[in-house]
């Protein structure tokens, strides 16, 4: 079975001009190390109170899974889950952190 490709087609990403469609670090780094980066964010925010992260391009981001990552990657099932399922890893982020997807689906259904 080929590895699934994360889906980047979300409204927040599509709204950005082509040149600015960049993650906090470059693609290769994020693909290999996003779990380590998220752990570092967690430790810096909770233990040291450092909430600002300077990305690869020198741009500053709020270090927050729920408020920064999920802002762009609002499609959790297509962006997070399908690779995690493929790799058989079960990160426990979502026990507490809210994803925006359910609400969007609910809204779409309401329409």
């Amino acid at each position: 079975m080929p590895a699934p490709k994360p889906d980047l087609n979300t409204p927040a990403i599509m709204k950005l001009p082509e040149k600015e469609r960049k993650c906090v670090m470059d693609l290769e780094f994020m693909r290999a190390n996003h779990m380590q980066l998220l752990n570092d964010w967690r430790d810096e925010v909770v233990r040291n109170g450092n909430r600002e992260f300077t990305g690869a391009g020198g741009k500053k981001y709020l270090a927050s899974l729920q408020n920064t990552c999920m802002e762009c990657h609002s499609n959790k099932t297509k962006f997070c889950d399908q690779c995690h399922n493929y790799a058989a890893v079960v990160p426990n982020c979502w026990g507490c952190h809210l994803d925006r997807e359910k609400k969007q689906v609910a809204r779409a259904e309401a329409k």
Partner: peptide, 11 residues
């Protein structure tokens, strides 16, 4: 290894 993590200004 510059400081990538800083507290937000205005805190």
């Amino acid at each position: 290894a510059l400081a990538q993590y800083t507290s937000k200004p205005g805190a």
